[in-house]
Amino acid sequence: MDLLDWHRGSLSTRRLSVLVKHMPRDSAVNRDLHGEAVEWDASTHLLAAAVDHLAVANWMTTTLNSGEDSEPLDYPEPVPRPGLASSELGDDEPTEVRPEKSHHHPSPADLALFFA
């Protein structure tokens, strides 16, 4: 398809807008508009959430089964998602930042009380 057809009058504005609106997820236009987020479909987001939940479950299990005198483990970092600011980004382009949630990481005693 030649986009100059719109300028020549043989391609209507409505048809052009429908073609642009229904471009494939990995098209250059979508990549330019949405960046890395076009590579993440619902399955990828669900997989990242599953990995995050498994990491937290492993952290809780290890924390519960470690001795009282052992040093507390670091809470697991979530899988980086597209559209979130990261300290590793070296570019000056603005990125969407979601408001941070205040995380209270449970202590071994809190976990023992919960699972008791």
Rank of each mutant, 00 (worst) to 15 (best):
D2R: 15
L4W: 12
L4T: 01
D5M: 14
W6S: 07
H7G: 06
H7D: 07
R8T: 02
G9S: 02
G9P: 04
G9V: 00
S10D: 01
L11K: 12
R14W: 04
R14F: 11
R15E: 08
L16V: 00
S17V: 13
S17L: 13
S17Y: 05
L19T: 12
V20L: 11
K21A: 07
H22D: 04
M23V: 11
M23H: 06
M23T: 08
M23Q: 13
P24C: 14
R25W: 05
R25V: 03
R25G: 04
D26T: 11
S27D: 05
A28F: 13
A28Q: 15
A28E: 11
V29I: 05
V29K: 11
R31T: 05
R31A: 00
D32G: 08
D32K: 12
H34D: 02
H34I: 04
G35M: 09
E36L: 13
A37L: 08
A37I: 09
V38A: 02
E39Q: 02
W40Q: 00
W40P: 00
A42Y: 07
A42S: 11
A42G: 10
S43G: 06
S43I: 03
T44G: 09
T44D: 07
T44I: 07
H45L: 08
L46R: 03
L46G: 03
A48K: 01
A48P: 02
A49M: 05
A50M: 05
A50G: 12
A50V: 06
V51W: 00
D52Q: 04
D52I: 03
D52P: 00
D52A: 10
L54S: 03
L54I: 06
A57V: 10
N58W: 04
W59C: 09
M60C: 10
T61I: 14
T61M: 10
T61S: 09
T63L: 05
L64D: 01
S66K: 03
S66H: 08
S66R: 13
G67L: 09
G67Q: 01
E68S: 11
D69P: 00
S70N: 01
E71M: 06
P72Y: 06
Y75H: 14
P76A: 08
E77H: 07
P78E: 03
P78N: 02
V79D: 01
P80T: 12
P80C: 14
R81G: 03
L84M: 14
A85E: 15
A85T: 14
S86G: 12
E88I: 11
E88Y: 10
L89F: 15
D92S: 12
E93C: 10
P94E: 14
